[in-house]
Measured scan of single mutants.
Amino acid sequence: MQRVNMIMAESPGLITICLLGYLLSAECTVFLDHENANKILNRPKRYNSGKLEEFVQGNLERECMEEKCSFEEAREVFENTERTTEFWKQYVDGDQCESNPCLNGGSCKDDINSYECWCPFGFEGKNCELDVTCNIKNGRCEQFCKNSADNKVVCSCTEGYRLAENQKSCEPAVPFPCGRVSVSQTSKLTRAETVFPDVDYVNSTEAETILDNITQSTQSFNDFTRVVGGEDAKPGQFPWQVVLNGKVDAFCGGSIVNEKWIVTAAHCVETGVKITVVAGEHNIEETEHTEQKRNVIRIIPHHNYNAAINKYNHDIALLELDEPLVLNSYVTPICIADKEYTNIFLKFGSGYVSGWGRVFHKGRSALVLQYLRVPLVDRATCLRSTKFTIYNNMFCAGFHEGGRDSCQGDSGGPHVTEVEGTSFLTGIISWGEECAMKGKYGIYTKVSRYVNWIKEKTKLT
């Protein structure tokens, strides 16, 4: 034993070699072989497995989906700052455009905790909710729209109204504003409101030439003092309507412009014939205590009207009353817009006519005020429907199939267009061939041609 100890002390290297040989010859039971080890760690190889990531292109799944990435790591994937920024906006807080917040056709661009709407022409605001041009839906104005110097929408209202708090709607500024039905039992019968379409306001006024200088022999019209197929109006439903009495009662109609003036057809009036105007009328054979009678003290036909040349060209006249009318729910003026808007309103496509005229061709006159909704007829169809001249200051309205029309005794009465609950004068009943005849239409004086003249002559002093 002493000898062994001496050998170990003198030859430590020998001992180490012996131990190493023993270990190498022993069977290893701690580690699995290569094949079995792979069965336990069965993990798919990654895209760049075996390579240094710093030297390969980034992978979106590896960089940002398996674990949260930084902007720089995302930049490695896209290799483009702009594309990385677009991805980053949604990656950080989701897609803010998912709810489609942009209105009126706006395009949404996502941002971090926010979004941006790219608005089409005519709109602005956070969600493109603000109209900035009158060309689109009248700028959301209830009545009139004008573009300011910086191309912003400025709404306005006709006389007797003021802008509401929203700067879009119009509200009454006087007790009985024009064009409004205020009798409670008839307010439910107000005709369907007309909503502004998209309009090209630059070209809204037709490029028409008034044929002022045409000389033409007097034409022989049949029954051209021209509501057939209409309905009984309720008291106060058309408070701007008046009836004219002269040699015979209810020979023509008219509309209240203001307390002192009536507008009617020029062919209705004769110099030297006494005319009485009755406002607030409903049943011409009954006294309903809503009527107001006034005498006409002055007749002003349009300066281009000449019955000797043509009885229905420039067929418009103004009547001055001896005493002002007292405005109330049964006696209310009709609204008159400017030339541009009167023309736009007419193009809405349908209007209402009213009167006490004959209820059928050569038949009896109506006792109760009649009204009828009539569609506008395109000019080409209008011209083809008659052998008589249709001037540019006239328009056609009615039904091709016949059966409904204005008729004798309705002449001078109103053709009105309702705009968001307020009625505007767009025409004056003038003439036609018979009444409600198939293929024939009622012919009306186009008020847009005469609004400046009306307003100039009827100013209240």
Score class of each variant (00 low, 15 high):
residue 8 M to Y: 14
residue 9 A to S: 13
residue 12 P to Q: 11
residue 26 A to C: 13
residue 28 C to T: 13
residue 28 C to N: 04
residue 28 C to D: 04
residue 29 T to Q: 09
residue 29 T to P: 03
residue 30 V to H: 14
residue 32 L to I: 14
residue 35 E to Y: 14
residue 37 A to C: 05
residue 44 P to K: 09
residue 45 K to E: 02
residue 47 Y to S: 11
residue 48 N to E: 02
residue 48 N to L: 00
residue 53 E to K: 00
residue 55 F to R: 08
residue 56 V to N: 03
residue 71 F to V: 05
residue 75 R to F: 09
residue 81 T to L: 10
residue 81 T to C: 05
residue 86 E to W: 06
residue 88 W to G: 03
residue 94 G to W: 08
residue 96 Q to F: 14
residue 102 C to G: 02
residue 104 N to F: 04
residue 106 G to S: 05
residue 110 D to L: 10
residue 123 F to M: 06
residue 127 N to P: 03
residue 129 E to W: 03
residue 134 C to M: 04
residue 136 I to T: 05
residue 145 C to D: 01
residue 145 C to K: 02
residue 151 N to T: 10
residue 152 K to A: 12
residue 154 V to E: 08
residue 165 E to F: 08
residue 165 E to C: 04
residue 170 C to K: 01
residue 174 V to S: 08
residue 178 C to M: 01
residue 180 R to L: 06
residue 180 R to M: 06
residue 184 S to D: 15
residue 186 T to D: 15
residue 191 R to Y: 08
residue 192 A to R: 05
residue 196 F to A: 14
residue 201 Y to T: 15
residue 208 E to D: 15
residue 215 T to R: 07
residue 223 D to V: 08
residue 228 V to G: 06
residue 229 G to W: 15
residue 234 K to H: 13
residue 236 G to S: 05
residue 238 F to R: 04
residue 238 F to W: 08
residue 245 N to F: 06
residue 251 F to T: 07
residue 251 F to Q: 08
residue 254 G to L: 00
residue 265 A to N: 03
residue 265 A to F: 02
residue 270 E to V: 11
residue 273 V to T: 13
residue 278 V to F: 05
residue 280 G to H: 02
residue 286 E to P: 07
residue 290 T to P: 05
residue 293 K to M: 05
residue 298 R to F: 03
residue 311 K to L: 08
residue 312 Y to K: 06
residue 314 H to Q: 03
residue 317 A to I: 03
residue 322 D to Y: 03
residue 327 L to A: 04
residue 327 L to V: 07
residue 328 N to Y: 00
residue 329 S to Y: 06
residue 333 P to H: 02
residue 338 D to F: 03
residue 350 S to K: 15
residue 356 W to N: 03
residue 358 R to C: 05
residue 362 K to Q: 09
residue 365 S to W: 08
residue 367 L to D: 12
residue 367 L to Q: 14
residue 369 L to I: 06
residue 376 L to R: 05
residue 388 F to A: 06
residue 391 Y to E: 14
residue 393 N to G: 12
residue 396 C to W: 02
residue 398 G to Q: 05
residue 401 E to G: 10
residue 403 G to P: 15
residue 404 R to V: 09
residue 410 D to V: 12
residue 414 P to H: 12
residue 414 P to G: 11
residue 416 V to S: 07
residue 424 F to Y: 08
residue 425 L to A: 00
residue 426 T to C: 01
residue 428 I to V: 09
residue 430 S to C: 05
residue 431 W to P: 06
residue 433 E to S: 14
residue 434 E to H: 14
residue 434 E to S: 14
residue 441 Y to M: 10
residue 443 I to P: 03
residue 447 V to G: 01
residue 454 I to V: 06
residue 457 K to N: 15
residue 458 T to R: 02
residue 459 K to F: 07
